[in-house]
Design a binder for these strands. Structure first.
Length: 405
DNA sequence: CTTCCACGGGAACACTGGGGTG
DNA sequence: CACCCCAGTGTTCCCGTGGAAG
């Protein structure tokens, strides 16, 4: 046997090019998005005619190709702009990372070679820096704000300033493209911002199972070696993802993980069973990942719910019960407990993450509560919680058997 | 109609980590 | 250097409110 890596360099038997299946990959063609591409291109083509394009707001659930489409059109437009000698720059900002007014303008100012610290200055100073930076010459700037719904509330000042910036510029023109997962997010915005940002609105509908199959087939062509996919694999991946509101990212993940599982099992082909296993593993991973990255206090709240589940033979608990158990846990760990008010917020967050289920119920004479229950198997949460050394002690917390009579 | 409990919005506060200025 | 300014985050405090049992 020659080198250890000899057999491994060629990417194994299954994959030819795994990168193609990663969510960051921008494909050459985007099936079933022709209409949207055309629409965006129509609007942005204003730049090439020397006009300011309208602002665009794009809606669609996760994995409907919003980001990929916009990035694809951007690339094309930039290329065309270079060819025609018109100055246009498209700046992509993920609002999840740059989620406040300050950070957005600081990033933009830096893009135009201004020196701005990422923290410390007054915001209007950063804003002026950015304006000065853009306005040095005649140019078109299109700011792409991905996950723009993240800005509702704390960052909407950025949207407001961006929407009226053109009246303060002499040379440059700025437009924006907002990409949102949340169809209702404009409700949270000021009327003026709403009308300005939503000059053009484009909807990305979820893919159906057949469309997902097309997407998968196209990528699989490049990603896998010939005839390693069982005929049932692509339809099954598509079907799984279609249940999940037609999420293409999910479908691609599924396909990739299925391939990895098949490879590790030394199977010459990817089979249906691999897909099923992949589906389970992805979900399990998600839970582990979410729980692991929870802030300490949230972990304690979550663990209180787990503990309650052991102590009583019940599934659902009132917020009062949970809060009491939480206080006991804090005492046990020698920590200051948070207020009830704060804990209800933490509970809501856990609910949104899908780890627990919380419904508000009114018990008439006996007031109002949230009924809280774990919505994932205890066995997948508890071990992860115990990995946190600060929580380890909770393993031996005395479970009081004193029942309410 | 009252009553009860906790929900959840909003203001205010504390604290952090960075800035600029004299 | 000391000192104050600023944005951002997590928290507490205060409080009006929902809605069915009694």
């Amino acid at each position: 046997m020659d080198n250890l890596f000899e057999g491994l360099v060629k990417g194994g038997r299954i994959f030819a090019n795994k990168e193609v299946l990663r969510p960051t990959y921008i494909p050459e063609s985007l099936p079933h998005r022709e209409k949207q591409i055309k629409h965006i291109a129509d609007i942005l083509s204003a730049v090439l005619r020397g006009e300011t394009p309208s602002n665009i707001l794009i809606y669609g659930k996760t994995g409907t190709g919003k980001t990929a489409t916009v990035k694809y059109v951007s690339k094309e437009l930039e290329a065309m702009g270079r060819k025609m000698g018109s100055k246009c720059s498209l700046i992509y900002i993920n609002s999840e990372v740059f989620d406040t007014q300050y950070r957005i303008f600081a990033y933009l100012a830096r893009f135009f070679n201004k020196r701005v610290p990422m923290i410390g200055w007054p915001t209007d100073m950063v804003y002026s820096e950015f304006k000065a930076g853009v306005d040095t010459e005649k140019r078109y700037v299109i700011v792409i704000l991905d996950e723009v719904d993240r800005l509702a509330g704390k960052g909407d000042g950025a949207l407001y300033n961006l929407s009226r910036i053109n009246s303060e510029l002499n040379n440059a023109k700025v437009s924006m493209i907002g990409i949102s997962n949340d169809l209702t997010f404009t409700d949270l915005l000021d009327q003026r911002i709403r009308s300005s940002l939503g000059e053009e609105e484009i909807i990305f509908p979820p893919y159906n199972a057949a469309q997902l199959q097309d997407i998968l087939s196209e990528r699989a062509e490049i990603a896998f070696n010939d005839s390693v996919l069982d005929d049932s694999v692509i339809p099954l991946c598509a079907a799984f993802a279609a249940q999940e509101h037609g999420d293409a990212r999910r479908a691609l993940d599924l396909l990739r993980v299925s391939g990895e599982i098949a490879e590790r099992a030394n199977s010459p082909k990817v089979l249906e069973e691999h897909v099923r296993e992949a589906s389970e593993r992805i979900e399990a991973n998600r839970i582990v990942e979410v729980v692991k990255t929870l802030p300490l206090q949230s972990k304690i709240v979550l663990s209180s719910i787990v503990l309650l589940g052991r102590e009583r033979n019940k599934k659902r608990f009132s917020s009062g019960e949970v809060y009491n158990m939480y206080r006991r846990s804090c005492n046990f760990l020698g920590m200051e407990p948070l207020t009830q008010r704060r804990v209800t917020d933490l509970v809501s967050e856990l609910d949104i993450l899908g780890l627990i289920n919380a419904v508000i119920v009114s018990k008439g004479r006996y007031g109002r509560t949230k009924e809280i229950s774990l919505s994932v198997p205890e066995s997948s949460v508890q071990p992860v919680l115990m990995e946190d050394y600060k929580l380890k002690a909770l393993a031996n917390i005395k479970v009081k058997t004193q029942m309410t009579l």
